[in-house]
Amino acid sequence: MANHAIPQHPGLVGAVPARGFPWRGGDDRPGEAASGRDGPAAAGARAVRRAPGGHPGWLIAPATLWLFVFLLVPLASILVFSFFTSTGFGMAPEPTIKNYVDYFEVEGFFDPEARKFLTPSVFLSTLGTTFRFALTVMVLCLLVGYPIAYFLALQVQAFKWQLALFLLCMVPFWTSYLIRAVAWLPMLGRRGLLNRALVELGIVEKPVSFLLYSEFGYTMALVQLYVVLCIGPIFFSLAKIDRQVLEAARDMGANAFQIFREIILPLSLPGVAIGMIFIFVMLMGEFASAVVVYGGKISTVGTVILNYYTFANYPFAAVNALMLMIAMMIGVVIILRVVDIRKQL
């Protein structure tokens, strides 16, 4: 399913500012920004300019051109299209805000008798559902992924074992994303391995249905699909921790929990944040596994965009795409507010 690539596009958009966020400090504390933050940055820029080989601008020229043509131009088009009028067989360049009105419409706002009093539009609630799933899966990924990364980085002593076990974690990711999703079917289905085991062990009388095509199965599959995206970054930030610091803490009488709370956890937060950003952005664009593992019993923003695109309502598909992107950016900003990556790195 080539369509799987689509949701990753907005993902890229969300992830790009996450790396640098040069404007963030300024937004935060305007007073401090001028002196404190711009100083080193400006110095850095001067250092680059003095590098041998003349002006280094050409180094980033290809990337800039690429991003302009394939990211900024399409983004701008989506924004412009979202204000076009849908003609039923495409769109006409007649500016309108109707698409946004439809998107945000809260039915029966002035009519308490209305069937759906104060219910947000189905598009907002779809965005909400997608968001809710993303949060659940992020928390679960963290609960599963952090201990794995912790074990790899701090319990396994030999570097070669660390590397070997880390690669072992990555093995499932050498196959296609879709195959990993489909692989859950023979596992969780009514005639699947798990059900057969349950019946044969006498735990249940007949196969249970809640494993597949259910919220349970969907969440489980998503955690498996994305957990490695946080194991990697957390592992690297944990591995960077100076062991002598931990020894020093131990010498000074700190117990294991104190060491974790005071040293390990704060120092691993940048890895956690980066991992969470990866997972969040991917999950918001998710729609293929909803079809495969949840049996299409849920609609994600991706599905909505596709449904409107199919029948040529491009403006409304554009509004949905933009709102998804904005939601992703807000999510990324929140994660970065919680953990100041720039300070930590």
């Binding site: 189905v122 779809t126 599905t303």
Partner: peptide, 14 residues
């Protein structure tokens, strides 16, 4: 009413 149909179908799925 295709647009309305898609909207309500989305609601159904959710």
């Amino acid at each position: 009413e295709n647009n309305y149909l898609v909207e309500r179908w989305t609601e159904f799925l959710n």
